[in-house]
Computed example of a mutant assay.
Amino acid sequence: MSEEQRALFPEVHLFKKSVRERFLVALREIYRRHPAYKFEDDMAATGIHIQPSYANISHEYRVPRFLIKIGQYNFGLQDGFFKNMTEEVRNNEGVVAGYKSFKVIPTTISVSVRAFVEEESSDLADELNMLGVFALHGMFTQVGINIQDATIGETQEVERENDLFETQVIFRVEVPWEYQHGTGRGPDDPNIDIDIPDPFGKEYRAPGVYTVVHNRSTPKN
């Protein structure tokens, strides 16, 4: 089954998936220019692997790896006091027929920094922290991920038989998200029926992770 077939709305931008893909894009672009750990799309040629946490990377590729995972987040459409904005949406007749919400959603991005030498894992984690929080912070804001700070864990041996070491880097981030829902009908129209908006999440604008919903139904004669 294809990825599109697994979603009720094939064009919807799933939050975790979208954040993960955008973070991967920025991180890979940064490491394409690294003098010692240059990222290449070819797994056999790359100097570092930068993949989602569920990626299956064979140990025959004995180069460092970044495994990316998105943490938990709270989601709601109600307006609040913490960096959330909601406004009314009017139809062509000037009647309020929907709403638009803009949210800033906090979450975490965990990077498992794995290497076959303990010092290498530790050093890569330290460098990644500096790149994300300070030196190349703008590379991530360009893709709508605002890194607030990071926690760098202790380097530990995770696979003794393969001499594999791991250091966790956890970024606390904020991600903008926008939702709009409206209808062409007025509030007094008696011919209201229930339908599924189409398209769902088709429009997408950067920077940020946005999901925009439009109900394009029109009044019945």
Results as ranks from 00 to 15, higher is better:
residue 2 S to D: 05
residue 2 S to G: 12
residue 3 E to T: 10
residue 3 E to D: 14
residue 5 Q to T: 09
residue 5 Q to D: 03
residue 6 R to C: 11
residue 7 A to V: 07
residue 10 P to Q: 10
residue 11 E to C: 08
residue 14 L to D: 08
residue 15 F to C: 06
residue 18 S to W: 00
residue 19 V to W: 00
residue 24 L to F: 07
residue 25 V to F: 03
residue 32 R to Y: 09
residue 33 R to G: 03
residue 33 R to P: 00
residue 40 E to I: 08
residue 41 D to M: 14
residue 42 D to N: 14
residue 42 D to W: 04
residue 43 M to I: 05
residue 44 A to I: 06
residue 45 A to Y: 10
residue 45 A to T: 14
residue 46 T to W: 04
residue 49 H to L: 00
residue 49 H to Q: 03
residue 50 I to D: 08
residue 54 Y to K: 15
residue 59 H to V: 14
residue 62 R to P: 03
residue 65 R to C: 03
residue 65 R to L: 05
residue 68 I to C: 02
residue 70 I to H: 04
residue 74 N to P: 07
residue 75 F to R: 11
residue 75 F to T: 01
residue 76 G to F: 12
residue 78 Q to S: 12
residue 79 D to C: 07
residue 80 G to M: 06
residue 80 G to I: 15
residue 81 F to C: 08
residue 81 F to A: 13
residue 82 F to K: 02
residue 82 F to W: 07
residue 88 E to A: 13
residue 88 E to W: 14
residue 90 R to T: 03
residue 92 N to S: 13
residue 93 E to V: 05
residue 104 V to K: 01
residue 104 V to A: 02
residue 104 V to C: 11
residue 108 T to Y: 12
residue 111 V to D: 02
residue 113 V to M: 08
residue 119 E to V: 08
residue 120 E to D: 10
residue 124 L to Y: 11
residue 125 A to D: 02
residue 128 L to Y: 00
residue 135 A to C: 06
residue 135 A to D: 12
residue 136 L to R: 11
residue 138 G to I: 01
residue 139 M to C: 10
residue 139 M to Q: 14
residue 140 F to A: 00
residue 140 F to N: 03
residue 141 T to H: 12
residue 142 Q to Y: 01
residue 149 D to W: 07
residue 149 D to A: 14
residue 149 D to M: 09
residue 153 G to T: 05
residue 153 G to Q: 05
residue 154 E to D: 02
residue 155 T to V: 01
residue 156 Q to I: 09
residue 157 E to A: 13
residue 158 V to K: 08
residue 159 E to M: 04
residue 160 R to I: 13
residue 160 R to Q: 12
residue 160 R to K: 15
residue 162 N to Q: 07
residue 168 Q to H: 00
residue 171 F to M: 08
residue 171 F to P: 00
residue 172 R to C: 05
residue 173 V to W: 10
residue 174 E to L: 15
residue 175 V to I: 10
residue 177 W to V: 03
residue 179 Y to K: 04
residue 181 H to W: 12
residue 182 G to M: 15
residue 184 G to D: 09
residue 186 G to T: 14
residue 186 G to F: 02
residue 189 D to H: 15
residue 190 P to K: 12
residue 192 I to Q: 15
residue 199 P to C: 04
residue 201 G to N: 09
residue 202 K to L: 01
residue 205 R to D: 01
residue 205 R to H: 05
residue 207 P to A: 06
residue 208 G to M: 11
residue 211 T to I: 03
residue 212 V to D: 11
residue 215 N to Y: 07
residue 217 S to P: 08
residue 220 K to S: 06
residue 220 K to W: 04
